[in-house]
Amino acid sequence: MKRIEVKLHLPAVAPLLDVIKASADSLRHDLAAPLRLDSLDDEFRAEWEAELVAAQNEDVRLLLSLFGHEFFGTGIVALDGTNAEAVVRACSAVRLRLRTGALAALPDEELESGAVEVERLAEPVRRAFMCYVFLATLQDLILNNLDEAILGP
């Protein structure tokens, strides 16, 4: 089984984990990307939402489990076929939640281009933005290294 281990810079990542955890917690009952499927009947839609929220919770749980006790000892996160898909999805969910929460005031163009003047941001927004970038980096890393092995059709 293909597996990658990533050594993260603990002093840089540790302060971000509280923000990730708070965003993750706020997703417990809501979808990160709300359903826009008006054509579904109410009962079917409720079933879908419940199933999607449950799957999202499990993905987020696996993301957070990367940063457990062992991580604080070694700074290493390990990704393989058992968690990579879930982690890449959870990163997307948390990024979407950060976008609509702490980063709501930033224009789309700035976020998409990465042309955000970090030093001008207030501290909570700066930390949220660093999380946003960190999770994208983690996604990129998984997609670049495990795409064919794990995320292929």
Binding site: R99, L111, Q139, L151, G152, P153
Partner: peptide, 21 residues
């Protein structure tokens, strides 16, 4: 599929490959 300014292009491509083949 609707555009969103959050998900990475590489992510969207990977998901379309995964879900729709």
């Amino acid at each position: 599929l609707l555009n969103d300014p959050v998900n990475l292009m590489s992510y969207t491509v990977a998901v379309l490959r995964r879900v729709l083949g």
